[in-house]
Simulated assay, not measured.
Amino acid sequence: MRRFILLTLTSLTCAAAAAGEAAKRAPFDPPDAAAIPASALGDSIRLGQHVLTQTQVYAKAWVGNGLNCTSCHLNAGRTPNAAPWVGIYGVFPEYRSRSGSVNSLQDRVNDCFIRSMNGKPLPNNSPEMEGIVAYMAWLSKGVPTGVDVEGRGFRRIVSAHVPDEAHGKQVFADKCVACHGPDGQGLPAADGGYAFPALWGPKSFNIGAGMARLGNASAFVRWNMPLGQGGILSDEEALDVAAYFTRQPRPDFADKGKDWPKGDKPSDSRY
C-alpha cells in the first residue's frame, strides 16, 4: 500500500508539473493581417512582412539560394508547429547551444540568413532588419515577455524507428515529387523564383541550417507536408523521407567548425 501511495503521489506530482509547464505557454493567437496600423510603424511592419515572405525580391542582396524565409516558416510565420514567429519577440535574448552564447533576435534572424538562406547577414540598422523585428514584435502582441506560445518551433516526433533512406526515397517519389520535382530542385515560378523550394542542391539550405537536421526536418514534414495536408504521413514515413532528403548534396557551411563550442553537438548534425 505504501508503494502504491508513493507511486500515486509521484504520478500526481509529475502531472502537476506538466500542467504547470503547459500553463506557462500563451495561446497561439496572432493578430489579423488587416490590423497592421496605417502609420510609419505600420510601414516598417509591412516591409518586414514583405522581406520574410518575398525574400528573393526584398532581400536578394543577402540571399544565396532560391528560398524565401516562409519556405520553412509557413503562412508568414503564422502556422503553429512550423517554426512560427508568433511570440518570438519576447523570448529573446536567448541562450543557444549552437553558438554557445546569448543571442539577440537580430542574431537569430541572421543565423537563418547565413544558413537556411545560404547567404550573408543583414546589417542590424538596415530598414530590412528593422522591418523584420517590427513584424515579429507585432505578431507577438499580447504574448507576455519570456513566455512561449503553444506551437512554437516544431512538434517533435518521439519514435524508436530507425530511419530507412531507401523507403524515404519511395515516400518522396509518392508524396513530394509533384511540388519539389524528381531531383528535389523545386518547382520554378514564372517570375524566376520558386513556387516550391528546392530540398537539396545549390538552391537549397546549407548543411548548417536547422532543417538539415533529421529531428527538425522530420517534425516539419510530419505536421506540415504535403502542403495543406499535414498529418497524413506517419511518424515512420516522415522520419524516412527526412533522412532521405537531408542527406542529399547541399551547400557547405564555412563556419561549421565554430558550432557547439561547448561540446554539446546533437547526434543528428550534418557535420
Rank of each mutant, 00 (worst) to 15 (best):
K60I: 03
K60C: 01
A61W: 08
A61C: 04
A61H: 09
W62L: 01
W62H: 14
W62D: 03
V63P: 00
G64S: 14
N65F: 05
G66T: 14
G66Q: 08
G66M: 11
G66E: 07
L67Y: 11
N68R: 02
N68K: 03
N68C: 08
C69A: 12
C69L: 09
C69F: 13
C69T: 12
S71Y: 08
S71H: 06
S71V: 07
C72Y: 05
C72T: 09
C72N: 06
H73F: 10
H73K: 04
L74V: 08
N75W: 06
A76V: 05
A76G: 09
A76Y: 03
A76K: 06
G77I: 05
R78C: 07
R78N: 09
R78V: 08
T79A: 10
T79M: 07
T79C: 02
T79D: 03
P80Y: 13
N81W: 14
N81G: 01
N81A: 10
A82D: 10
A82H: 12
P84R: 00
W85G: 08
W85P: 02
V86L: 05
V86W: 00
G87R: 05
G87H: 07
G87V: 06
G87F: 07
I88A: 14
I88S: 05
I88Q: 09
Y89N: 12
V91I: 15
V91C: 02
V91P: 01
F92S: 09
P93Q: 09
P93R: 09
E94D: 13
E94Y: 11
E94T: 07
E94P: 00
R96W: 05
S97L: 06
S97Q: 12
R98Y: 02
S99N: 07
S99F: 09
S99E: 10
S99H: 06
G100F: 00
G100P: 01
S101Y: 10
S101G: 06
V102E: 13
V102W: 12
N103M: 13
N103G: 00
N103V: 14
S104V: 04
S104M: 02
L105E: 07
Q106D: 10
Q106A: 15
D107C: 09
R108I: 14
R108A: 15
V109T: 14
N110M: 02
N110D: 10
N110H: 04
D111H: 14
D111T: 11
C112V: 10
F113M: 14
F113H: 06
F113S: 04
F113C: 02
I114W: 02
I114M: 09
R115F: 03
S116N: 08
S116R: 03
S116T: 15
M117R: 00
M117H: 00
N118V: 14
N118A: 15
K120I: 10
K120N: 03
K120T: 12
P121D: 06
L122A: 01
P123T: 12
N124E: 15
N124C: 05
N124M: 03
N124T: 10
N124K: 11
